[in-house]
Simulated scan of single mutants.
Amino acid sequence: MSNQQLALQIDKPGDIPVVGPREIPNVPAGEVLIKILATALNPADWKIQDMGFLSVFPAIPGTDLAGEVETVGAGVTKFKKGDRVMTQGFFDVPDRASFQQYTLMKENFVAKIPASLSYEEAATIPMCFVTAAVGLFAPSAANLNPGVEWLGHKQTGQTILIIGGSTSVGQYVVQLAKFIGFTNIIVYASKKHHTYLTGLGATQCIDRSAVSLDALADAIPGEVDLVYDAVMFPEAQDAATNIVRVGGKVATVSNGADMRSEAVKEASKDKHFYMVAGGAQWPGQEEFCAALWERAERFLIEGIVKPNRHELLPGGLRAIVPGLERLKKDEVSGVKLVVRPHDTEI
Rank of each mutant, 00 (worst) to 15 (best):
T103Y: 01
S168I: 08
L216D: 09
G334T: 06
V211W: 08
T252I: 04
E286N: 02
F179S: 09
R96P: 00
S118L: 04
G247Y: 02
F273K: 05
E294Q: 15
N42D: 03
G201M: 11
V148C: 06
A251V: 14
F91T: 05
M275G: 07
K78C: 11
P314E: 13
K306Y: 12
Q237G: 15
P283D: 05
C289I: 03
S333H: 08
I243H: 04
L136H: 07
Q175D: 07
Q100K: 00
C128K: 13
L327K: 02
Y228V: 10
N108D: 15
T87R: 07
I243M: 03
A236R: 04
L312M: 15
P21R: 13
P94W: 03
G75P: 00
L41T: 01
E302Y: 00
I10A: 08
H153F: 13
A141V: 01
L300D: 09
A257N: 15
G157F: 01
G247E: 07
F79N: 12
F99M: 04
M127K: 14
L144P: 11
V305W: 07
G73W: 04
L324C: 06
Y274T: 05
A44R: 13
A296T: 13
L313W: 10
E120T: 03
L317G: 00
A132G: 10
N184V: 07
D45G: 04
W282P: 08
I36R: 07
C128P: 02
I346Q: 15
R22Y: 09
K271V: 09
P283G: 06
F57D: 10
P13E: 12
D238Y: 06
A40W: 02
I34T: 06
L324E: 12
I206E: 00
G30H: 11
P25E: 08
V72Y: 03
W293T: 05
G14F: 10
E23Q: 15
A132K: 03
